[in-house]
């Protein structure tokens, strides 16, 4: 398969292509390759009840992060396998749409104690714990780009996932790195993520899966 020029192992081209490497209290991780499935349904529908996630909040379930990004839209984040498995369990009777936005969004994570302080330089949202607690979801302008932002702490460390239109990815990443320099950010890039055609890169998928398991360590179901 590797020798066939028309069906090689397909490399996911991240929209964030410029690497930065400095050390410090913040980390920035490119998570653009994570699957992102958008479910659109009426808030009163059985689908919405199954998703059990109100607008403005998120919760982890079976290895995915379900985010209520709009009153009638939910963004499911995780590995490809886990996301499609989650969608497969949904009651899709009636007017329900599932749109794969994996390639449509750039997405990265900023983690560390000063992560909110870095975001304060780019975004007017109130990041205090009572207004934006863990697993809160907010749509806001970050450096003049509309983003969905999910607070998703890990092991007690403050962490935010930022998703924007793919085409803004490099610009936004650069803006966040600039803001984070004050706190000496470390940016790591996953530019060697391989998603095999009709196959599975266990190592990579596991890395992505790890990001979206809950703190109890529940793993996504096997493919």
């Amino acid at each position: 398969m590797a020798d066939d020029p028309l069906s090689p192992l397909l490399r996911f081209e991240s929209p964030i292509v410029t690497p930065y490497h400095t050390g410090g209290a913040l980390t920035l991780d490119d998570e653009s390759s994570a699957s992102k499935l958008l479910v659109l349904a009426d808030p009163a529908s059985p689908t919405a009840q199954q998703l059990a996630t109100t607008f403005g909040s998120a919760h982890r379930n079976e290895g995915v992060l379900v985010c209520g990004v709009r009153p009638n839209e939910w963004l499911i984040l995780g590995s490809s396998e886990a996301c499609w498995a989650a969608v497969a369990t949904l009651d899709q009777e009636g007017h329900v749409s599932v749109v794969d936005l994996t390639h449509s969004r750039a997405m990265f994570r900023i983690s560390g104690a000063p992560s909110a302080s870095a975001l304060e330089k780019l975004c007017s949202v109130d990041w205090n714990d009572d207004m934006t607690p863990n697993l809160a979801v907010v749509s806001a302008s970050v450096a003049k780009v509309t983003c969905d932002i999910i607070r998703d702490d890990h092991d007690g460390v403050r962490s935010y996932v930022i998703a924007c239109d793919r085409s803004f990815g490099q610009y936004l990443f650069d803006a966040v790195v600039d803001a984070a320099q004050e706190f000496r950010a470390q940016a790591s890039l996953r530019d060697e993520i391989w998603i095999a055609d009709d196959a599975f890169s266990t190592e990579v998928d596991a890395e992505i899966a790890d990001l979206f398991v809950d703190d109890d360590g529940d793993e996504p179901a096997d493919r």
């Binding site: 994996t102 449509s104 969004r105």
Partner: peptide
């Protein structure tokens, strides 16, 4: 349902 997918 309308979803912008310009850059997807």
């Amino acid at each position: 349902h309308i979803t912008p997918v310009t850059t997807g």
